[in-house]
Amino acid sequence: MEKFQLRAGEDFIRLGQVLKAAGFVESGAEAKEVIQDGLVSVNGETETRRGRKLHKGDIASYDGREIEIG
């Protein structure tokens, strides 16, 4: 499992942003597509909202890869 560290002073990151920052997708448009298609899960549940806020301890999964927000 990969880890994504929030920047100092940040409380959250949006799902589409973390998929792109982690290299799970190439672009924001691709992130939007895979999320809307129901291919991404957060904490084990399918998530279709690109703007979903992820906080410390949340785990996002896509295409067999996982990333934990830290």
Rank of each mutant, 00 (worst) to 15 (best):
M1C: 05
M1K: 12
M1N: 09
E2A: 11
E2D: 14
K3T: 15
K3Q: 13
K3V: 15
K3A: 04
K3L: 05
K3G: 01
Q5D: 10
R7L: 13
A8L: 07
A8I: 13
G9W: 01
F12M: 05
F12W: 05
F12D: 04
R14A: 04
L15N: 00
G16E: 06
Q17A: 12
Q17P: 00
Q17K: 15
V18P: 01
V18F: 00
L19M: 03
K20A: 08
A21T: 05
A21Q: 08
A22N: 07
A22I: 10
G23R: 14
V25H: 01
V25Y: 07
V25G: 00
S27Q: 04
S27G: 11
A29E: 09
E30G: 03
E33K: 14
E33R: 14
V34N: 08
V34D: 07
Q36R: 15
Q36W: 00
Q36D: 11
D37L: 10
G38Q: 10
G38K: 14
L39G: 00
L39I: 09
L39C: 01
L39N: 12
V40T: 05
V40L: 05
S41C: 06
V42K: 04
N43K: 08
N43T: 06
N43S: 10
E45H: 11
E45D: 05
T46H: 00
E47T: 12
E47I: 10
E47L: 04
T48V: 13
T48D: 12
R49I: 07
R49Y: 07
L54G: 06
L54F: 02
H55T: 14
K56S: 14
K56H: 14
G57Y: 09
D58R: 06
I59R: 15
A60S: 10
A60V: 15
S61I: 08
S61Q: 15
Y62D: 08
D63C: 12
R65T: 12
R65S: 10
E68F: 01
I69P: 04
G70W: 09
